[in-house]
Protein backbone atom coordinates (compact mmCIF):
# COMPACT_ATOMS: atom_id res chain seq x y z
CA UNK A 1 0.00 0.00 0.00
CA UNK A 2 1.37 3.34 -1.01
CA UNK A 3 0.15 6.90 -0.28
CA UNK A 4 2.85 9.03 -1.93
CA UNK A 5 0.96 12.31 -1.50
CA UNK A 6 0.74 12.09 2.28
CA UNK A 7 3.11 15.03 2.62
CA UNK A 8 0.65 17.17 0.66
CA UNK A 9 -2.21 16.55 3.05
CA UNK A 10 -1.46 19.23 5.64
CA UNK A 11 -0.73 22.10 3.23
CA UNK A 12 -3.72 21.10 1.09
CA UNK A 13 -6.01 20.94 4.09
CA UNK A 14 -4.91 24.27 5.51
CA UNK A 15 -5.29 26.03 2.20
CA UNK A 16 -8.80 24.66 1.65
CA UNK A 17 -9.93 24.93 5.27
CA UNK A 18 -8.69 28.49 5.82
CA UNK A 19 -10.13 29.60 2.47
CA UNK A 20 -13.53 28.25 3.46
CA UNK A 21 -13.20 29.65 6.98
CA UNK A 22 -12.37 33.14 5.73
CA UNK A 23 -15.60 33.10 3.72
CA UNK A 24 -17.75 31.24 6.27
CA UNK A 25 -16.82 33.70 9.00
CA UNK A 26 -17.50 36.75 6.85
CA UNK A 27 -21.10 36.76 8.14
CA UNK A 28 -19.85 37.82 11.59
CA UNK A 29 -19.86 41.50 10.74
CA UNK A 30 -22.01 42.99 13.51
CA UNK A 31 -24.87 43.86 11.15
CA UNK A 32 -27.53 41.22 11.76
CA UNK A 33 -26.52 39.53 15.03
CA UNK A 34 -23.68 39.07 17.47
CA UNK A 35 -21.15 41.65 18.63
CA UNK A 36 -21.28 45.14 17.16
CA UNK A 37 -18.60 47.66 17.94
CA UNK A 38 -19.90 50.92 19.36
CA UNK A 39 -16.94 52.88 18.03
CA UNK A 40 -17.88 52.97 14.35
CA UNK A 41 -19.31 55.78 12.21
CA UNK A 42 -19.36 54.01 8.81
CA UNK A 43 -20.46 50.48 7.85
CA UNK A 44 -16.90 49.52 6.85
CA UNK A 45 -15.60 50.69 10.19
CA UNK A 46 -18.43 48.97 12.01
CA UNK A 47 -17.71 45.63 10.33
CA UNK A 48 -13.96 45.97 10.75
CA UNK A 49 -14.04 46.90 14.43
CA UNK A 50 -16.76 44.37 15.30
CA UNK A 51 -14.71 41.59 13.73
CA UNK A 52 -11.42 42.76 15.22
CA UNK A 53 -12.92 42.98 18.70
CA UNK A 54 -14.85 39.71 18.42
CA UNK A 55 -12.39 37.21 16.89
CA UNK A 56 -9.47 35.58 18.74
CA UNK A 57 -5.90 35.29 17.38
CA UNK A 58 -6.17 31.81 15.77
CA UNK A 59 -9.36 32.79 13.99
CA UNK A 60 -7.80 36.02 12.70
CA UNK A 61 -4.73 34.11 11.54
CA UNK A 62 -6.84 31.61 9.64
CA UNK A 63 -9.00 34.34 8.11
CA UNK A 64 -5.87 36.18 6.89
CA UNK A 65 -4.36 32.99 5.49
CA UNK A 66 -7.63 31.98 3.82
CA UNK A 67 -8.10 35.47 2.38
CA UNK A 68 -4.59 35.33 0.94
CA UNK A 69 -4.89 31.90 -0.73
CA UNK A 70 -8.09 33.05 -2.48
CA UNK A 71 -6.88 36.51 -3.45
CA UNK A 72 -6.33 37.71 -7.01
CA UNK A 73 -2.96 36.64 -8.32
CA UNK A 74 -2.51 33.91 -5.71
CA UNK A 75 -5.63 31.74 -5.95
CA UNK A 76 -4.22 29.65 -8.81
CA UNK A 77 -0.96 28.95 -6.96
CA UNK A 78 -2.61 28.06 -3.67
CA UNK A 79 -6.33 27.40 -3.71
CA UNK A 80 -6.68 25.86 -7.15
CA UNK A 81 -3.55 23.73 -6.67
CA UNK A 82 -4.88 22.58 -3.32
CA UNK A 83 -8.10 21.38 -4.97
CA UNK A 84 -6.01 19.42 -7.48
CA UNK A 85 -3.90 17.95 -4.66
CA UNK A 86 -7.11 16.99 -2.89
CA UNK A 87 -8.19 15.03 -5.98
CA UNK A 88 -4.83 13.25 -6.00
CA UNK A 89 -5.06 12.38 -2.30
CA UNK A 90 -8.54 10.97 -2.85
CA UNK A 91 -7.53 8.81 -5.80
CA UNK A 92 -4.48 7.45 -3.98
CA UNK A 93 -6.63 6.50 -1.00
CA UNK A 94 -9.24 4.85 -3.18
CA UNK A 95 -6.50 2.84 -4.92
CA UNK A 96 -4.99 1.81 -1.57
CA UNK A 97 -8.37 0.80 -0.19
CA UNK A 98 -8.80 -1.55 -3.12
CA UNK A 99 -5.89 -3.55 -1.71
CA UNK A 100 -6.58 -3.27 2.04
CA UNK A 101 -9.78 -3.06 4.11
CA UNK A 102 -8.70 -0.09 6.17
CA UNK A 103 -5.73 2.12 6.88
CA UNK A 104 -4.41 2.28 10.45
CA UNK A 105 -2.25 5.14 11.76
CA UNK A 106 -1.77 6.90 15.09
CA UNK A 107 -4.50 9.49 15.57
CA UNK A 108 -1.94 12.23 16.29
CA UNK A 109 1.87 12.12 16.03
CA UNK A 110 2.57 13.06 19.69
CA UNK A 111 0.74 12.73 23.01
CA UNK A 112 -1.40 15.71 23.95
CA UNK A 113 0.56 18.92 24.36
CA UNK A 114 -0.17 21.53 27.01
CA UNK A 115 -3.03 23.95 26.51
CA UNK A 116 -1.81 27.03 24.64
CA UNK A 117 1.63 25.49 24.06
CA UNK A 118 1.62 25.65 20.30
CA UNK A 119 -0.63 28.64 19.72
CA UNK A 120 2.32 30.81 18.72
CA UNK A 121 3.66 28.18 16.33
CA UNK A 122 0.90 27.53 13.85
CA UNK A 123 2.95 25.19 11.73
CA UNK A 124 3.56 22.76 14.62
CA UNK A 125 -0.09 23.07 15.53
CA UNK A 126 -1.24 22.24 12.01
CA UNK A 127 1.19 19.29 11.75
CA UNK A 128 -0.58 17.66 14.69
CA UNK A 129 -3.39 16.94 12.23
CA UNK A 130 -1.23 15.05 9.74
CA UNK A 131 -2.93 11.65 10.22
CA UNK A 132 -6.53 12.76 10.48
CA UNK A 133 -6.52 15.25 7.64
CA UNK A 134 -6.37 12.91 4.61
CA UNK A 135 -9.71 11.25 5.43
CA UNK A 136 -11.30 14.68 5.88
CA UNK A 137 -9.94 15.93 2.57
CA UNK A 138 -10.91 12.74 0.74
CA UNK A 139 -14.36 12.51 2.31
CA UNK A 140 -13.67 9.01 3.65
CA UNK A 141 -15.13 7.54 6.86
CA UNK A 142 -12.67 7.37 9.75
CA UNK A 143 -12.67 6.87 13.50
CA UNK A 144 -10.27 7.09 16.42
CA UNK A 145 -10.01 4.34 19.08
CA UNK A 146 -8.31 4.71 22.50
CA UNK A 147 -5.40 2.22 22.57
CA UNK A 148 -3.31 2.83 25.69
CA UNK A 149 -0.93 5.43 27.08
CA UNK A 150 2.26 7.09 26.00
CA UNK A 151 4.22 9.30 28.41
CA UNK A 152 1.30 8.74 30.88
CA UNK A 153 -1.13 10.32 28.43
CA UNK A 154 -3.93 8.48 26.61
CA UNK A 155 -3.41 7.92 22.90
CA UNK A 156 -5.51 6.45 20.12
CA UNK A 157 -5.23 4.91 16.70
CA UNK A 158 -7.05 6.05 13.61
CA UNK A 159 -8.82 3.85 11.08
CA UNK A 160 -9.78 5.00 7.59
CA UNK A 161 -12.06 2.98 5.33
CA UNK A 162 -13.43 3.07 1.81
CA UNK A 163 -16.54 5.14 1.06
CA UNK A 164 -19.61 3.79 2.88
CA UNK A 165 -17.54 1.34 4.96
CA UNK A 166 -18.69 2.76 8.29
CA UNK A 167 -20.11 -0.60 9.38
CA UNK A 168 -16.78 -2.34 8.85
CA UNK A 169 -14.90 0.39 10.75
CA UNK A 170 -17.28 0.23 13.68
CA UNK A 171 -17.11 -3.58 13.77
CA UNK A 172 -13.29 -3.53 13.79
CA UNK A 173 -13.11 -0.97 16.59
CA UNK A 174 -15.69 -2.92 18.61
CA UNK A 175 -13.57 -6.06 18.40
CA UNK A 176 -10.49 -4.10 19.50
CA UNK A 177 -12.27 -2.36 22.37
CA UNK A 178 -13.76 -5.65 23.65
CA UNK A 179 -10.24 -7.04 23.94
CA UNK A 180 -8.56 -3.79 25.10
CA UNK A 181 -10.96 -1.66 27.14
CA UNK A 182 -9.00 1.58 27.22
CA UNK A 183 -11.94 3.83 26.78
CA UNK A 184 -12.36 4.62 30.49
CA UNK A 185 -8.79 5.71 31.07
CA UNK A 186 -8.17 9.34 31.87
CA UNK A 187 -5.18 11.60 31.77
CA UNK A 188 -3.71 12.60 35.15
CA UNK A 189 -4.89 16.11 35.89
Amino acid sequence: MDLPSSDLAVPTYYVVATAEASSNLARYDGVRYGHRSTQATTPVEMMTLSRSEGFGPEVKRRILLGTFVLSAGYADAYYVRALRARSKILSEHLAALEKVDMILTPTVPTPAFKAGEKISDPLQLYLEDIFTIPANLAGLPALSVPCGKSQHLPVGFHLVGAPLSEKKLLAASRVFEAAHPYRHQQAPL
Binding site: L64, L65, R81, G139
Partner: peptide, 25 residues
Protein backbone atom coordinates in the same frame (compact mmCIF):
# COMPACT_ATOMS: atom_id res chain seq x y z
CA UNK B 1 3.44 33.28 10.98
CA UNK B 2 1.97 33.51 7.51
CA UNK B 3 5.47 33.47 6.02
CA UNK B 4 6.30 30.37 7.98
CA UNK B 5 3.13 28.55 6.95
CA UNK B 6 3.38 29.61 3.33
CA UNK B 7 6.98 28.37 3.17
CA UNK B 8 5.72 25.00 4.32
CA UNK B 9 2.94 25.17 1.69
CA UNK B 10 5.62 25.25 -1.02
CA UNK B 11 5.45 21.44 -1.17
CA UNK B 12 2.18 22.08 -3.00
CA UNK B 13 3.94 24.16 -5.62
CA UNK B 14 6.48 21.43 -6.33
CA UNK B 15 4.00 18.54 -6.35
CA UNK B 16 3.07 16.72 -9.51
CA UNK B 17 -0.70 17.22 -9.63
CA UNK B 18 -3.54 16.19 -11.92
CA UNK B 19 -4.39 18.95 -14.44
CA UNK B 20 -7.79 19.64 -12.91
CA UNK B 21 -9.63 18.84 -9.73
CA UNK B 22 -12.23 16.11 -10.01
CA UNK B 23 -15.69 17.06 -8.99
CA UNK B 24 -15.80 15.06 -5.80
CA UNK B 25 -19.49 15.23 -5.18
Amino acid sequence: QLNQVLTYFETLARADLPPAANVAQ
